[in-house]
């Protein structure tokens, strides 16, 4: 699973470069996230704008990645496509993340705050 990572304004922006986070790729996603966020800023934003399908395995992997950051760090989500957003809403997992319309909005939200 290919991820990219940049840090801007003290926020680590992690981009997912895959169309799907599903049962076939959830473990790889979790491992790659663990590597990308092992060290780094306390504030991570996961950019899901390239992802057009997640299933419950993918959802579980995203939640696990957030939990793995530990108590002092946070993970927001950005750029969710409508079908991905629907999975979060149906499972109510949209309640546990701060969700931004896009990666750039996630970065400016921090500035404004």
């Amino acid at each position: 699973m290919e991820l990219s990572s940049t840090t801007e304004n003290g926020i680590q922006l992690v981009g997912v470069h895959a169309k799907r986070i599903d049962a076939a790729s959830a473990v790889q996603f979790k491992d790659a996230m663990r590597q990308e966020t092992e060290t780094g800023p306390a504030h991570v934003v996961l950019d899901l704008s390239n992802v057009d399908f997640i299933d419950s395995s993918g959802l579980g992997a995203i939640v696990a990645s957030m939990k793995h950051l530990g108590g002092g760090r946070r993970m927001d989500l950005a750029g969710m496509t409508p079908d991905v957003d629907k999975v979060f809403r149906l499972t109510r997992m949209d309640k546990i993340f701060t969700i931004h319309a896009s990666a750039s909005k996630a970065l400016t939200a921090r500035k404004a705050g």
């Binding site: 419950s56 992997a61 546990i96």
Partner: peptide
């Protein structure tokens, strides 16, 4: 304690 599974049948 957040759930990482148990969503499938509900979906």
């Amino acid at each position: 304690d957040l759930p990482e599974g148990g969503f499938g049948w509900h979906l």
